[in-house]
Amino acid sequence: MSRTVYVNGSYMPEENATVSIFDRGFLFADGVYEVTAVLDGKLVDYAGHVTRLERSLGELQMGMPISSEELLEVHRELIKRNNLEEGALYLQITRGAEDRNFLFPKDAKQTIVLFTQAKSLTAEKSGLRVISVPDIRWGRRDIKTVQLLAPSMAKMMAKAAGKDDSWMVQDGFVTEGTSNNAYIVTKEGKIITRNLSTSILHGITRAAVLKLAAELDMEVEERPFTIEEAQQAVEAFVTAATSFVCPVVEIDNVELSGGKVGPVATRLNQIYIEESRKAAI
């Protein structure tokens, strides 16, 4: 069944949607994106995603081509037209189309595209098995650009190894997963995750989960950690907009706690889903 998508102000069947071959998102990865989870037909952490979107655009010297109010209405209309109860809504904004030139165009009309993806977000998670790979991405990972070739290649490396995902490593320390923020839990019960900087994406789910952890009196330390330290942990997990809190049970062929999903990740995922259902708009 064809989805209804949104392209540059118009709703249309997905098979009719087109973007110029001169679009800078296509030619230069000159664009940003956001993915917002949908639960019960409502948007999760929407305000955080819009705030990060505006920041990403600003870092690339772009403005918002649509008001926040209009953007929310587009999200809701797509959810309605596609009868989406659970899944995700993808948004991409590029600098627009102009003949190929490394210099930014001054007056190009930005391209804005949105579409829905139906998927289960709340099913029980069995735990990911990850491998470590070198982090070869550019130096501004805090900007959520559409430059996703390196993470895609890292995910394919994990698949080739018979695993689920990769954790990227730079200078001996884990930065993040291919599409998620990474965490470990020490024997003392402390949650450790890399501190915010230009080295990692400032995850919206990350912020929400760390807030919940603090409210549950869980100790959190924000600092880099190594693969070796992670292998000695009792638990590990990742967070992302459409996987919420997802346990990791194996790192570079070393199982954590016998390969069993741990209580910290399980509890945080349950609480996150409960709170998200209450706050979704």
Rank of each mutant, 00 (worst) to 15 (best):
V7D: 10
V7C: 15
G9H: 06
G9K: 07
G9P: 12
S10V: 10
Y11G: 10
Y11E: 13
M12L: 15
M12Q: 15
M12P: 09
P13H: 11
E14L: 07
N16H: 10
N16A: 08
A17H: 12
S20L: 13
S20A: 14
F22I: 12
F22H: 15
D23F: 02
R24T: 01
R24G: 00
G25Q: 01
L27F: 04
F28C: 00
V32K: 10
V32T: 14
Y33D: 14
E34D: 11
E34M: 06
D40V: 12
G41V: 13
K42N: 15
K42P: 03
V44S: 03
V44H: 02
D45Q: 13
D45L: 07
D45S: 11
Y46V: 12
A47V: 13
G48C: 03
H49K: 09
H49Y: 03
H49A: 03
V50S: 01
V50C: 06
T51D: 15
R52W: 01
L53H: 09
L53C: 12
E54N: 08
E54R: 09
S56T: 08
G58V: 05
L60A: 02
L60S: 00
Q61N: 12
Q61V: 06
M62R: 04
G63Q: 03
G63E: 06
G63S: 08
M64A: 06
P65E: 07
P65A: 08
I66A: 02
S68P: 00
E69M: 09
L71R: 01
L72E: 10
L72V: 06
L72Y: 05
H75K: 07
I79L: 05
I79R: 11
I79N: 13
K80L: 09
K80W: 04
R81P: 01
R81M: 06
R81L: 12
N82H: 04
N83G: 11
E85I: 05
E85P: 02
E85N: 13
E86D: 09
E86T: 12
G87Y: 03
A88R: 15
A88C: 07
A88L: 12
A88G: 13
L89V: 15
Y90C: 08
L91Y: 06
I93F: 03
I93A: 04
I93C: 05
R95I: 01
G96V: 01
A97M: 08
A97Q: 05
D99T: 09
R100I: 07
N101Q: 13
F102Q: 11
F102I: 12
L103Y: 08
F104R: 00
F104L: 13
P105N: 10
P105D: 11
K106G: 11
D107E: 14
D107R: 13
A108F: 00
Q110I: 02
Q110H: 06
T111K: 14
T111R: 13
I112H: 03
V113W: 05
V113C: 10
L114H: 05
L114Y: 06
T116L: 07
T116C: 12
T116M: 05
Q117R: 04
A118N: 12
A118T: 14
S120L: 10
S120Y: 09
T122L: 03
A123N: 10
K125A: 03
K125S: 09
G127A: 06
